[in-house]
Design a protein around this nucleic acid. Structure first.
Length: 575
RNA sequence: CGGGGAGUAGCUCAGGUGGCCAGAGCGCCAGAAUCGGGAUCUGGAGGUCGCGGGUUCAAGUCCCGCCUCCCCGACCA
């Protein structure tokens, strides 16, 4: 271990926020180069490679074929798919010496579609599934939490091409199984949730999430029927009963300086549930007004998905003032000529309050369709803990998690945009039906630490531990200990074990602390009990020490080690 | 991008009202003694005080500009 490049840190760097970040840094696995950009040191690299290999094996097993696509991608392809603007600010863009635009690939749908388009011409060649494990670049608004949200990261991305939806469904299921298998091999606790497809596009989507306090995916789940969905996707299917309240006369009232729902509610003495929130969004095709009951939260992801425009964003106060002549806070649906999309919660509301479309005024007793027309009705409501499960009606529960895998049924979005067609049985040209499947490889490293650690450091599962065994020579001044340590080390190496020998001339405590921080699953202490012919074996997460005799050779030791490895399961410590 | 904070030794940080203030602990190097939970002692190396400009006899310290990093909000593997 003296030779190993593992610069461990006793003190916590000041800018870490999460345990995985702290321990990976302190344990000498990674070092930061810039915000969201890291170097992997030998231990980090080893873990990364192990995760990669698990993912690779499971991909190969379902017939996906590994390829490698370029990181640098010409803008032209992205303009053709329409995502140069949609993905826009998140892309790391650059120009070559001739001034041509390029991007460091945030994902590879464009490249792969372009590739297959030129090579695959017949339904006979389908389905085709390819994948790669490569660096991805996303200029995140705010990189955070070390490897969990980096700007340069390693992802496995797979793409499938089909001649029929049935074939896509089959492959989609294969990926679902493969991803579950990866989770199982990592030995982590995980859940599969229904998800929104976001900027990738497409219809059906699932996320593979591991629960964690610092997770950024909010998961809603039902104890009773097993429904699980991300908060971006979770549907609201509750009832909005009609009332027999009579429609009163529309009235414009002065509301000086009263802008927020809360202020309006207090000022007019009306509950938030009788106010309709009007939000102006700006997208590719101009303005969209979204309407929802005042006591509910609008789910932007649902709105984007509904209008099929990922570039949609809330209009700025300046834009609203300029284009509508009204400060935000007073905008409303009456007398405004924009596309209006309303949440179902607005449907049977009677005599509600909306903005007056004039500074310092609101309308009271508004009613639709009498006073304004809603163009489309849909579900825009953010589902929260306690809302009814859309499947069985039981109140939902909420938790947070880290998204490791995300699979999508894309359909023909990219193939149509990129003009990628094949010829079917009847000799007709048809666009490929596609699926895409991502797995955050570098994020997995951090997520596993997030799930398995204690106050002393990381606790690696055997499957991805940088080394499985550390042999600690407690007192290197003791000739006998040193000799036995080396003997055991060499014997383990010969048996193909991934092992390191810690014979550094530092105090025993120092070596124990390092071993715990790094999280070797099994520690072998060659210490004072060697006098009586024993060495000790210890699982990282357990206090128990097993003494085995090495007086008559190492066979007893090997047996004990195998037994410990069989039993080893960091999930034991999760309770 | 908006709001808040920070850049001084490899790491964690002190000094900040201008001048005998270039500092501590840890780490590193040499040595001593020691060896079951980051021990101890002695000696030593190590800094463009983020960068650029300005004010001043004198600037980590005051002023201006810039850069980087971190935290809180909208994005995603």
């Amino acid at each position: 271990m003296g030779q190993l490049y593992v610069p461990t840190l006793k003190e916590t760097p000041s800018d870490v926020e999460t345990k995985s970040h702290e321990y990976l840094l302190r344990g000498g696995f990674i070092r930061k180069v810039a915000a969201g950009v890291y170097t992997y040191l030998p231990l980090g690299r080893r873990v990364l490679l192990k995760v990669e290999n698990i993912v690779r094996e499971e991909m190969d097993r379902i017939g996906a074929q590994e390829i490698l696509m370029p990181i640098i991608q010409p803008a032209e392809l992205w303009k053709r798919s329409g995502r140069w603007d949609d993905y826009g600010p998140e892309m790391m863009k650059l120009k070559d010496r001739h001034g041509r635009d390029f991007t460091l690939g945030p994902t590879h749908e464009e490249i792969v579609t372009e590739l297959v388009k030129d090579e695959v011409k017949s339904y006979r060649q389908l389905p085709l599934v390819v994948y790669q494990i490569a660096n991805k670049y996303r200029d995140e608004i705010r990189p955070r939490f070390g490897l969990l949200r980096a700007r340069e990261f390693i992802m496995k991305d797979a793409y499938s091409f089909h001649s029929s939806w049935e074939s896509l469904d089959e492959v989609y299921e294969l990926f679902k199984k493969a991803y579950s298998k990866i989770m199982e091999r990592l030995g982590v606790k995980y859940t599969i949730v229904e998800a929104e497809s976001g900027a990738i596009g497409g219809s059906v989507s699932h996320e593979f999430v591991i629960p964690a306090r610092i997770g950024e995916t909010n998961v809603l789940y039902c104890d009773r029927c097993g429904y699980q969905a991300s908060d971006e996707k979770a549907e609201y299917r509750g009832e909005y009963p009609a009332t027999d309240e009579e429609e009163k006369n529309l009235e414009k009232v002065p509301t000086p300086g009263i802008r927020t729902i809360e202020e309006v509610s207090n000022f007019l003495g009306v509950p938030p549930s009788k106010i309709v929130k009007s939000l102006l969004y700006k997208g590719r095709d101009g303005y969209v007004m979204a309407l929802i009951r005042g006591d509910l939260e609008l789910n932007e992801a649902k709105l984007k998905a509904y209008v099929k425009d990922q570039s949609l964003r809330l209009a700025t106060p300046e834009e609203v003032l300029e284009d509508f002549g009204v400060p935000i806070g007073f905008i409303g649906p009456i007398g405004v000529d924009v596309r209006k999309v309303a949440d179902h919660s607005v449907r049977y509301l009677k005599n509600f309050v909306v903005g007056g479309m004039e500074e310092d005024t609101h309308y009271v007793n508004a009613n639709q369709p009498r006073d304004f027309r809603v163009d489309e009705w849909c579900d825009l409501r953010t589902v929260v803990e306690g809302d009814p499960c859309p499947v069985c009606g039981t109140p939902l529960k909420a938790t947070k998690g880290i998204e490791l895998g995300h699979i999508f049924k894309l359909g023909t979005k990219y193939s149509e945009a990129m003009g990628a067609y094949f010829m079917d049985e009847e000799g007709r040209l048809r666009p490929f039906i596609m699926g895409c499947y991502g797995w955050g490889v570098s994020r997995t490293v951090a997520a596993v630490v997030e799930q398995f650690h204690d106050e002393d450091g990381m606790i690696w599962p055997l499957t991805i531990a940088p080394y499985r065994v550390v042999v600690v020579v407690v007192n290197v001044g003791d000739e006998e200990q040193r000799t036995m340590g080396e003997k055991i080390y060499r014997a383990l190496l010969e048996r193909g074990e991934e092992v390191v020998l810690d014979d550094r001339e530092v105090s025993p405590g120092f070596k124990f602390k390092d071993a715990d921080l790094i999280g070797f699953p099994v520690r072998v202490n060659v210490g004072k009990s060697l006098k009586d012919g024993f060495v000790e074996l210890k699982k990282r997460y357990s206090r128990d020490v097993v003494k085995v005799s090495v007086r008559n050779g190492l066979s007893e030791f090997f047996e004990a080690l195998e037994r410990i490895k069989m039993e080893y399961d960091p999930k034991e410590m999760l309770r």
